[in-house]
C-alpha cells in the first residue's frame, strides 16, 4: 500500500549537510498497522512527512495505493493539483493535533471536505457521522480549546478520515497524551484499522505503541531502517534488537563462570513446563533472572532470562535440549568473552 524505494533526504544549510534519510526502503502492506520506531533524530518524522510529500525527498520514490507520488509532484517545489488530489486520499494525524482554534470541532472536521468541494449539507452530515465514529458527537459545537488532549486527538482522527482515505499517517499521535488516553486512542486506531480496512503507518518513540497495535514494525537509526518485519517474525529472529527493545528481559548474572541464556517461547512451547523438565533431566539448578509474558496478535509470547551454572562449554547439552523443545535460545555474551550469540535453527 505504501512503498518507498531508496528514499533519501539531505538538508543543506550554508556549509553543512545533514542526512535525515539514507536510502529507506519501506513496504507497508494493505490493511496492516505498521510502526516505525526510533529515537528522536533517527529520521522517523522526516520519513512520514516524505510519504505525503510534505517534505520533498532528495532522491527515491514514494508510492501510495499504486500511485507514484514523487512523479506526481514533479520537479516543482510547490504542490501541484495532482499531488494535492492524491493527498486528499491520505489522512494524517499529528502529535500536537493541529486543530484550527478558530473553528468549532464540527467545522474542523468539515475542513478537508471544504477543500474537496463537498456541499454544505453533505459536509455537515459527514462531519457528524465521523464525530459519532470517534465518540465525540456531543462535542460538535465546542471549540478545540474546550477539549482535553485525548478529545482533541479524536477530532484530529475524525478530520483525517473525512476524505475517506485508504491510508492513515500518524505522526507521534499519542506522544503528547497520558498512558490512559494513549490506550484509548490506540484502541480507536485499531478499531478503524479493522472496521474500515484502513492501512496505518505510524511513527513513535514508544515501544508500547508498537506492542499494542502494530502488525509490523521497523527500527530506524541514523536515517536507515536497521530492522523490519512482522512483529511475530521479529520476535522469532535471534538477536533481534527490536524484539529485545519490545520485550526487554533484565537481570544481571549472579557471578562468574555461569551461563546466561535468553529464551523466547512461542505458541505451544509457551505452555510446556520446559524449565522444570530441564532441571530434572540434567539435575541442574536454574535461576530465573527475568521474565515477561506478552500477547502479540492474539498469540502468547514469553521471554525469559535464565542462568545455568558453569561456563558455556559445560552447558552445550542443556542448551541443545532447550532448542529441541522448540524454544528460541540466545546465549548472552559473557563479560570479557567474544560476543557469543547463537541462533535457533
Amino acid at each position: 500500500m505504501i512503498t518507498t524505494t531508496g528514499l533519501t533526504k539531505v538538508y543543506r544549510s550554508r556549509d553543512r549537510e545533514t542526512v535525515a534519510l539514507d536510502g529507506v526502503d519501506l513496504h507497508v502492506r494493505e490493511g496492516e498497522v505498521y510502526g516505525v520506531v526510533g529515537r528522536s533524530g533517527a529520521g522517523k518524522s522526516t520519513l512520514i512527512r516524505c510519504v505525503n510529500l510534505l517534505e520533498r525527498p532528495t532522491s527515491g520514490t514514494v508510492e501510495v495505493a499504486g500511485r507514484d507520488l514523487t512523479a506526481l509532484a514533479g520537479r516543482s517545489d510547490r504542490a501541484g493539483s495532482a499531488l494535492r488530489t492524491a493527498r486528499t486520499g491520505i489522512g494524517m494525524v499529528f502529535q500536537h493535533f493541529n486543530l484550527l482554534s478558530s473553528r468549532t470541532v464540527r467545522d474542523n472536521v468539515e475542513l478537508p471536505l471544504e477543500i474537496l468541494g463537498v456541499s454544505g449539507r453533505e459536509r455537515r452530515r459527514k462531519a457528524l457521522e465521523l464525530l459519532d465514529l470517534v465518540g465525540l458527537a456531543d462535542k460538535a459545537r465546542a471549540y478545540p480549546a474546550q477539549l482535553s488532549g485525548g478529545q482533541k486527538q479524536r477530532v484530529g482522527i475524525a478530520r483525517s478520515l473525512a476524505g475517506d482515505p485508504k491510508v492513515l499517517l500518524s505522526d507521534e499521535a499519542t506522544s503528547a497524551l497520558d498512558p490512559e488516553t494513549t490506550r484509548s486512542i490506540l484502541q480507536l486506531l485499531r478499531d478503524l484499522n479493522q472496521q474500515l480496512g484502513l492501512t496505518i503507518l505510524l511513527i513513535t518513540h514508544e515501544m508500547d505503541v508498537v506492542k499494542a497495535i502494530c502488525d509490523s514494525a521497523a527500527l530506524m537509526k541514523g536515517g536507515r531502517i536497521v530492522e523490519s518485519g512482522k512483529v511475530t517474525d521479529l520476535l522469532a529472529t535471534p538477536g533481534s534488537e527490536l524484539a529485545h527493545e519490545l520485550f526487554p528481559v533484565g537481570g544481571e548474572p549472579s557471578g562468574e563462570g555461569r551461563t546466561v541464556v535468553d529464551l523466547t517461547f512461542h505458541g505451544e512451547a509457551a505452555t510446556e513446563p520446559v524449565i522444570s523438565q530441564l532441571s530434572r533431566t540434567y539435575n541442574i539448578d536454574i535461576s530465573v533472572l527475568g521474565a515477561a509474558l506478552e500477547t502479540i496478535g492474539g498469540r502468547q509470547v514469553g521471554r525469559m532470562r535464565i542462568e545455568l551454572p558453569g561456563a558455556f562449554e559445560d552447558n552445550v547439552v542443556p542448551i541443545g535440549f532447550l532448542r529441541e523443545k522448540g524454544l528460541q535460545v540466545d546465549v548472552a555474551p559473557v563479560a570479557g568473552d567474544e560476543l557469543v550469540k547463537e541462533g535457533a535453527k
Binding site: 494535492r84 484550527l100 473525512a162
Partner: peptide, 24 residues
Amino acid sequence: GLVEAVQAMGGSTWTVVRKALLPE
C-alpha cells in the same frame, strides 16, 4: 503545524491563507 495540516489535506497555498492563516 496548522499550515502543514491543511497542506496534508490537499489544500493549496490560497486555501492555507484563507482557511488557516487569516482566521487563526
